[in-house]
């Protein structure tokens, strides 16, 4: 039986995010998407989708926060 899967979630500061989308490019679970509404700086920030199409969620691998140039992402592990 595989190791019990680590799960977690992330909080994205909608105002700090500048819409560079590097987090989306590194998220293995594809649980980050571009928001529809614009933030005060004039960017379309990213939002946490919770789960992807196959129903899988965040595994708290911290890759998104590691590459985020604006420290807009906080990561929590369950």
């Amino acid at each position: 039986m595989g190791k019990e899967q680590v799960t977690g979630n992330i909080i994205i500061d909608q105002e700090l995010c500048k819409g560079c989308y590097l987090c989306i490019s590194v998220c293995p679970q594809n649980v980050i998407a571009v928001s529809k509404n614009i933030n005060r700086q004039g960017y379309y920030p990213v939002i946490f989708k919770g789960t992807n199409e196959e129903g899988k969620g965040c595994i708290a691998c911290v890759r998104c926060a590691t590459i985020c140039p604006d420290i807009a992402i906080e990561v929590y592990r369950d």
């Binding site: 977690g8 979630n9 105002e15 700090l16 500048k18 819409g19 560079c20 590097l22 700086q41 960017y43 708290a60 911290v62 926060a65 590691t66 590459i67 985020c68 140039p69 604006d70 420290i71 992402i73 906080e74 990561v75 929590y76 592990r77 369950d78």
Partner: peptide
């Protein structure tokens, strides 16, 4: 119990960066 894995570093003032989106400077600052 959830543990926070990532947060703002102590020796970086909590303020938005003036750098462009996707700039490496602010990553290196962190």
């Amino acid at each position: 119990m959830t543990t926070q894995l990532f947060s703002w570093p102590r020796y970086l003032k909590k303020t938005a960066f003036h750098y462009c989106p996707g700039c490496g400077h602010s990553i290196i600052h962190r």
